[in-house]
Design a binder for these strands. Structure first.
Length: 317
DNA sequence: AACGCTTACAACCGCATATCC
DNA sequence: CGGATATGCGGTTGTAAGCGT
């Protein structure tokens, strides 16, 4: 036995809410609360609306402390930074902006902010034949969470572009399914467990954990690079990556002895010396970094279409 | 004034996950 | 435990207002 049907679809009103409906809903909720049951609410409140519609109206418009009107520069900055970091997870972004709803932020982004930010990036640059189309920034649409591995089709696309480094000591683990954010965005040319300071490499290799047919991306080169060749913080960043790898291994149940094996392997972290890692904290992005990240993301969305994968592989081959 | 286009925002739809029976 | 519904989320659509011609 399941629950009773949600509502009589044929007998509910759709479309814009009238002031009278708003007043009824507001009055009822302020007096009686939602009772944790939106489906029953419209009937109790005397509304010919679906419970889902009532919930949306309350949360997005009638609820107290909802902010309407212009977004501040600070809010813009937070939205951009988070979008660049986690993509279109509007509910998470909304959680950082008191009084704003996910719907509000989504609309604001789609109609104004995106254009505002991208005003100086009207033209998408063609990615280098030697660079990953996802370089430096994992498009949010590739992942269902910040920790997800790329889908098999995307992974196979990666595999066609880049040298991969197999972590021999990891190959027996079959259940890796997530990647820590700092590793996902790690800007090293290869990942290391035995970090060696001062090593640099001019190439643009990526490294992945190769397990059966799937790949976990543990490295990534940036399409936005500092052109001055600086390597500020690269060593400490490498250690961050190493640290994250350790945490990751712990979280995925790799025991201590196996971690030691992995960390004693001979793979080294090597940075392309023109590359500068992006910040791990999305709120630390500079405006230029945000623009670049979003620009890359928007341009790369074309490539996310699985149907285009073969075409893309052919192009880069 | 009328028309068409653009913009902004509210609301809906479909899907994934949570919860209930 | 499994099936069915409830909830929450993100993408998309509908529509009214504003603006230019």
């Amino acid at each position: 036995m399941g629950r009773a049907p949600c509502c009589d679809k044929a007998n509910v009103k759709k479309g814009p809410w009238s002031p009278e409906e708003d007043a009824k809903l507001k009055e009822y909720i302020e007096k009686s609360g939602t009772g944790g049951n939106w489906i029953a609410l419209p009937q109790k409140a005397g509304l010919r609306r679906c419970g889902k519609s009532c919930r949306l109206r309350w949360l997005n418009y009638l609820r107290p402390n909802i902010k309407h009107g212009d977004f501040t520069d600070d809010e813009d900055s937070i939205i951009c930074s988070l979008f660049a970091s986690i993509g279109s997870r509007w509910s998470i972004i909304a959680a950082q902006l008191p009084g704003r709803t996910d719907n509000d932020i989504k609309n604001y982004w789609n109609t104004k902010l995106k254009k505002k930010i991208m005003g100086s990036h009207k033209k998408c640059h063609q990615p280098s034949p030697y660079a990953s189309p996802y370089s430096g920034f994992e498009p949010a649409s590739l992942t269902s969470s910040p920790f997800s591995a790329p889908s098999p089709s995307i992974s196979s696309a990666y595999h066609n572009y880049h040298t991969t480094t197999q972590f021999r000591s990891l190959s027996r683990y079959e259940t890796f399914s997530s990647t820590p954010p700092s590793l996902l965005n790690a800007n090293c040319s290869s990942i290391s467990t035995g970090f060696q300071e001062g090593q640099h490499m001019g190439g643009s290799m990526h490294s992945y954990l190769v397990q059966d047919s799937s790949l976990l991306r543990f490295g990534g080169e940036a399409s936005c690079s500092s052109s001055d060749g600086s390597s500020t913080n690269q060593n400490s960043y490498g250690k961050e990556v190493e640290h994250d790898l350790q945490n990751y291994l712990c979280s995925t149940g790799v025991d201590h002895e196996d971690q030691k094996i992995i960390f004693n392997s001979d793979v080294t972290i090597e940075y392309a010396d023109h590359q500068k890692p992006y910040s791990e904290n999305p709120l630390d992005y500079s405006l230029e970094e945000i623009k670049q990240l979003i620009s890359t993301n928007l341009c790369n969305n074309f490539f996310v279409d699985e149907n285009k994968t073969d075409e893309k592989v052919a192009y880069y081959n």
